[in-house]
């Protein structure tokens, strides 16, 4: 076979692989969106159970994302900019929930926050029960979503030009002002896309929530849990919630890529 025909064969095989994969990824999504008449969507999405699931999802993710941003940003800055023994091990530990099966995350949270757990015991004495409450949904979402934000934030802060931070100190800025005026704005884009990933993961959270918080309508049932609960009852309702979640996911992806969408 000549070089030219080998090149052509490779190009053809690659195009075929790409077409097959794109079709496999796109067809289920198209099927989902087209399986319910658009006119029925408002009715299906305004059932009391779905509206409750929307409320639980929004509330839990608002609180979880506030926790992730408020605690995660300074923590990532500290881990990225200080050298200490065990730093690499700590980063690996932070990243562990990324690859942990969600059900395992749920079990781990139950063990920790259950009445006999190291954290749950103390909370139980103070009269606070965590498992199977809305607080458990918040903690499950935080547990699985935080690593996405932390990972982006740590690598962005670590890549900062140390001379810029040092220059700011010699210009009279204390550590907090350097963080606020120099480090945060320089890492804003990476923090935003890390947050978008964490938010998407949090909104779609299923396994850890089911194990740790259950699927109690109006209390702990989030939208992904509602899809599962509606499936045997009303396929159309489950599909409608699926379309809603797909739209939210697409929007998050779009927002996180907005500045670079028009480049190659």
């Amino acid at each position: 076979m000549s070089t030219r025909s080998r090149n052509r064969a490779f190009l053809g095989a690659s195009a075929l692989a790409a077409a097959a994969l794109i079709a496999f990824l796109a067809i289920p999504l198209i099927a989902l969106v087209t399986s319910v008449a658009p006119g029925h969507l408002p009715e299906l999405l305004t059932s009391p159970q779905t509206l409750d699931a929307v409320r639980v999802t929004v509330e839990a993710n608002l609180v979880a994302d506030a926790l992730i941003l408020l605690l995660g940003t300074p923590a990532a800055y500290l881990i990225a900019r200080r050298s200490f023994a065990g730093r690499r091990a700590l980063i690996t530990l932070i990243e562990l929930p990324l690859v942990l099966p969600p059900a395992v995350a749920g079990i781990a949270l139950i063990v920790a926050f259950g009445p006999n757990g190291p954290l749950g015991g103390a909370l139980a004495k103070a009269g606070v029960t965590v498992p199977f409450t809305e607080l458990a949904v918040v903690l499950a979402v935080t547990f699985v979503a935080a690593p996405f934000y932390l990972r982006s934030a740590i690598s962005a802060f670590a890549a900062l030009d140390g001379d810029c931070l040092d220059a700011a100190r010699t210009l009279g800025a204390g550590r907090f002002r350097v963080f606020r005026r120099v480090a945060l704005p320089l890492c804003a884009e990476a923090l935003r896309s890390g947050w978008a990933l964490a938010f998407a993961r949090g909104v779609g959270e299923f396994g850890a929530t089911l194990v740790f918080a259950g699927s109690v309508a109006g209390v702990t049932q989030t939208l992904p849990l509602a899809v599962y609960a509606e499936l045997p009852v009303s396929l159309d309702s489950a599909i409608a919630i699926g379309i809603l979640l797909l739209a939210v996911s697409a929007l998050i992806l779009l927002v996180s890529k907005l500045p670079s969408l028009w480049t190659d």
């Binding site: 030009d161 001379d163 810029c164 040092d166 220059a167 700011a168 120099v182 704005p185 320089l186």
Partner: peptide, 9 residues
């Protein structure tokens, strides 16, 4: 600083 370390933003 050697590379001037101006704040790029």
């Amino acid at each position: 600083f050697q590379n001037y370390a101006l704040f790029p933003h």
